[in-house]
């Protein structure tokens, strides 16, 4: 029930927002068309601005993934994962999630294919996927759009959020699905 409402909401949200904004602007006597075009002009510029930042970030992540360093890292981290009760099969997910969206999506599908979507590992891995965002992509794009390269504690804060998200996913799945 709640699920259906939420899904319906996500579909009607955009048309409703658009209609509301346009109607309100028209009532306030804003030259709607002119104003929209003036804003939309920035689209190209922003997209081009983020290219160098995104190239830098994705290439570094690409090198890291292609090199097989991930497998080595997973082996090194398995004992720690064992200690906190994280199944070894989902350790790559915890590592990959902040780095790449498409990569972790593929990994989630692979793991669920292997162990079944309704197994404990299947539920855990999809919860982990849903408990976080692709931190490095967000950092590159958002900071890139305003030319910020001294990011201070942004990486640390983002990674702490990721780690807590992964541990939270593990905890809730352990409690609910054993």
């Amino acid at each position: 029930m709640i699920k259906d409402i939420l899904q319906a909401l996500s579909i009607v949200a955009i048309p409703l927002i658009i209609a509301a904004f346009v109607a309100y602007a028209a009532r306030k006597k804003v030259p709607v068309y002119e104003s929209f075009v003036a804003g939309a002009k920035g689209g190209f510029e922003v997209a081009v601005k983020i290219i160098p930042y995104l190239v830098a970030m994705l290439v570094a992540i690409g090198i890291f993934r292609a090199s097989g360093a991930m497998e080595i890292l997973v082996k090194l981290l398995s004992p720690i994962a064992n200690l906190i009760g994280m199944p070894p099969q989902v350790v790559p997910m915890a590592l990959l999630r902040p780095l790449t969206g498409s990569g972790s999506l593929g990994l989630m599908a692979d793991i669920m294919k292997k162990y079944g979507p309704d197994s404990f590992i299947g539920i855990l891995v999809s919860t982990m996927y849903g408990s976080s965002e692709t931190t490095f992509y967000v950092l590159a794009v958002y900071f890139g759009s305003v030319n910020i390269y001294r990011t201070r504690h942004a990486v640390a804060a983002g990674l702490i959020a990721d780690a807590v998200g992964m541990l939270g996913a593990l905890m809730i799945c352990r409690i609910l699905f054993g």
Binding site: F21, Y24, A25, R27, S35, F36, A38, G39, A40, G43
Partner: peptide, 23 residues
Amino acid sequence: SLGLIGVMAFWLGIMKLAEDSGM
């Protein structure tokens, strides 16, 4: 990056509207 241009332009347009109207 380039794939973002379209949606980017659209939402920046809508946002400008919303700013100009005080929404």
